[in-house]
Amino acid sequence: MRLDKFICDCTGLTRSQAGKVLRQKRVTINGQLVKQASLQVADSDQVVLEGKPLTIVGLRYIMLHKPAGYLCANDDPEHPIVFNLLDEPIVERLHTVGRLDLDTTGLLLITDDGQWSHRISSPKHHIAKTYRVWTADPIGDDAVSLFAEGIMLRGEKDPTKPAELDIVAAHEALLTIHEGRYHQVKRMFAAIGNKVEQLHREKIGGLQLPADLAEGAYRQLTAAELELLAK
């Protein structure tokens, strides 16, 4: 691989920026100062930029326990974004797999693998998502059958796909949906005359938010967890 491309892949710099740091004599290979952008880098070479060894960043698959008050966006002038919670190189290459609302907490997936992200978030794959919901008013027993039949949302042409509702307490339930319409959970409860006061995503497919992952913390998915999502 060319040296300038290697630097770009490790740092997120553009090709012209990589050329500039080379011309400024800020890069060494195996302890030797280098300036040639076209120089080929071998796997055994140690490339150092201003004292920091460079390593190509591979594809990343991250689970984050999203707190309330953070936006699932790459930039926002008014609110903090979920990427502020990550201590990752080249964070601008990452994106969220779907979104959680500003006030919604829970399991959020983040990656720089576009194909994987599409498989997880595409409606045609029908990957289930389970939310714990707290409501303003008591949840009627009829909500179970209504959600199972599909709810007609305001402004929509088709009802929601059948969803599974498990009433935990008068104002608390677990809801599993198989699509991802805009503000879907909140709109489903609004359609039956109730209001969602708090919303927390617990599960995507077979992947459960670990109890020991603190709010605001994140980690890489394990191979076993990736397999769960692939099923």
Rank of each mutant, 00 (worst) to 15 (best):
D87M: 04
V133S: 08
D101S: 11
G206D: 08
G12L: 10
A42I: 09
D4P: 05
Q36P: 11
I81A: 03
Y218K: 02
V144C: 00
H126P: 08
I192L: 02
Q184H: 00
D141T: 13
A190E: 15
A217R: 12
K186S: 04
A223T: 09
L100S: 06
L165G: 00
H79A: 10
Y70P: 11
I192Q: 05
I120H: 02
C8F: 00
K195I: 14
T104G: 11
H200Y: 13
A37W: 03
T104R: 13
T11A: 02
L94V: 04
L153I: 04
Q184I: 01
L153K: 07
L102C: 11
L174T: 07
V185C: 04
G98W: 02
D75F: 12
I204R: 07
A190T: 11
L229R: 10
P138R: 12
I151E: 07
A217I: 09
D9L: 11
D45F: 03
L221I: 00
S145M: 15
Q24I: 09
V82L: 06
H125T: 05
P77K: 04
L107G: 05
G155I: 01
K66M: 13
L213E: 12
T104C: 14
V133A: 10
D113T: 03
Y218D: 06
D101G: 09
I192W: 04
A37T: 10
G216P: 07
L86F: 01
A214G: 12
P67H: 11
E215Q: 14
S121Y: 05
V82H: 02
G193F: 05
W116R: 02
L22V: 01
G19N: 13
I127D: 05
E149K: 13
Q32Y: 07
L49W: 04
N194P: 12
A190H: 15
D4W: 00
F147Q: 06
R219S: 02
R132V: 14
A68T: 11
G150L: 07
D142P: 02
I81E: 00
R99I: 05
K52Y: 03
H178T: 10
K186Y: 08
R93G: 08
A68P: 14
